[in-house]
Design a protein around this nucleic acid. Structure first.
Lengths: 191, 191, 191, 191
DNA sequence: CATGAATGAGGGTTCATTCAT
DNA sequence: AATGAATGAACCCTCATTCAT
């Protein structure tokens, strides 16, 4: 419980960016320290070691993302409306935390994630699975393994995010709408 | 002019598997040597260094995949048929080279890939882009950035592959058919 | 002119205990600060650095021990009586400063002791040497290098102290008497 | 099981010398590597880490010393003769392995010694304890805690060794004989 | 005065790479 | 050609020391 919240968050921000850009193993503690403009030793005042840092980061953003997806979730609406809610929240979350979703996706399943991180992650998956499973029951979502459907949604969305950040595309309303529609068509049941 | 094709390929096979499973940075040369049942020094007879090895591997499988996609490509058929061709070849390629596509996807864009690898990769993308662009002209593919559509296709497919390899799912004909249909619905133009 | 004698002595007490228990190199400044219930920085108000601290401590207890040995030393008595005096003072000193003699013995000769510490220590040795040398002249002490005899005395005594502190033995009058007798027999001249 | 026994033993020799001279914590791996004229990394081909190195060393010399004490031990002789045997073997062992006994004595009980090392060490102590206990039964050894007696013997002997190595004394037959006599008088029963 | 957050030099350790065999 | 022992640069991490509060 450090009094200087800024420094701790500088470290987390730099770590998030570098882990997302280069991956955990290719990111050194000196790199993070340099980017966060702190001494290398300072990182160890806030995080026991590199693995604790990456797990903290992972769990933090999984939690934050989960919270954002669940907030005001339209429990009683149609699958389409629920999907819209989820997709919009993904967009919002990405706007607020630039590298977070990409970091989560690329580091999920890695050897250095602890039990707690894995558990939290499967919690996140569960939200999406529940949405899909309920939609399948209702006949609004196609009969395919939920994991595969989730991959399609995330895959498309994250690739979009990369293109926007690298300025190959502009984040227009039309574009976001189009990708949402595409992903929805991938998961919805067609008659 | 490799005198011993087997040993070089043993190394490449082991490297592919380990890079796909653990990532480039978490895979050590002794690990590869051990898996390939050669001495660590032997790897340096065939590859100048670790980065050359990973670039060789990357380019090799990008080329092979490109070749497989292009072979007997139904230039004159409908987008749906072309899509079917591409999807079938992805399945076939994955069957023949277990970790290759996953390796390519997870290592694409990494800091250690050289210009040549990046170029080859964009060549691969071009095949898919051309297919999508032509389909868009014809009004058979939806008007969305091709890169985003490609991500959806790959994302869904690779996730499927993981689930099958981890034996969470069985590779039934129905399943493959369903994922193909889902991906197609994501990219095709809906009236 | 220390304004706060208590805090400085808290630090010295904690340092003595920890140096004796773990050794100089395995004892960290934060450990000492924690044990003394002061901030780590506070230690540097009283001691320029860790080496100054250990040298201060070393010299302090060497001086104190020397003082105790010399006080009321029976200059004119027999070697046996002089020995008894010295042995009793060792017992008394140990009772008053639990870890001090063990600290001195284990840190004597260490690389971080400065010239002054070494000099003071040899001063301490001198007292014992003078006693032994005079005893040899008188024919009451055996003809052996004084250093070896001192080692026997200290060795036996300190081992005894350890056993008592670890509660493997109880500090009975008989026990102390027995060890004194044993050490005396080691150094005295036998006819 | 390295083929190059010399290099492994160079490392052990250097480590023994430096641990004895400076202690475990003050001895760095680069110091050992430099003294042994090997690269720092080479040490890790032979020893998993620094603690394994020190435990290996400790156990090796405890075993060797134990073997030397036990070999041709005069089980049926008087305590005096048994003591002579033990003392002579200490001398011989020290001649053959310069720093070994001092290293054992100063590192015994340290926090980095593992269970196996402690067990082996107590085995060594047992030999001396058995000798002393049997002597007490016979009335040839004085009634004092064996540990205290052992300390006297070792203390005197090791101090002697130091003096000889630092060339403050010469290892004459008379000197060794005198110290043996002194130690014997410390432990034997006087009527 | 007292503190403890911050620092960075230096330790233990790993591993890409070399080279004698 | 093939090996794996040897190396040392560079990693993660600790801790003596400083300094703003």
């Amino acid at each position: 419980m450090p009094t200087n919240r800024t420094k701790r968050e500088d470290i987390l921000d730099s770590a998030l960016k570098l882990f997302a850009e280069r991956g955990f193993d290719a990111t050194t503690i000196p790199m993070i320290a340099g980017d966060a403009r702190v001494g290398a030793g300072t990182i160890y005042r806030y995080f026991e070691n590199k693995e604790v840092l990456v797990n903290t980061l992972f769990q933090h953003y999984v939690q934050a993302f989960k919270g954002m997806l669940e907030e005001e979730y339209p429990q009683e609406s149609s699958s389409r409306e629920q999907f819209h809610h989820l997709f919009q929240r993904m967009v919002q979350f990405t706007n607020e935390h630039a590298h977070a979703l990409y970091f989560i996706k690329t580091h999920n399943g890695a050897y250095f994630l602890n039990e707690s991180s894995r558990k939290q992650f499967s919690c996140l998956w569960k939200i999406l699975r529940d949405f899909l499973d309920k939609g399948k029951e209702r006949g609004e979502i196609r009969e395919l393994p939920s994991l595969a459907l989730i991959a399609i949604i995330f895959g498309g969305f994250l690739e979009l995010e990369q293109l926007i950040r690298s300025e190959e595309l502009e984040a227009s309303r039309d574009l976001l709408h189009g990708v949402e529609e595409s992903c929805w068509d991938a998961v919805r049941h067609h008659h």
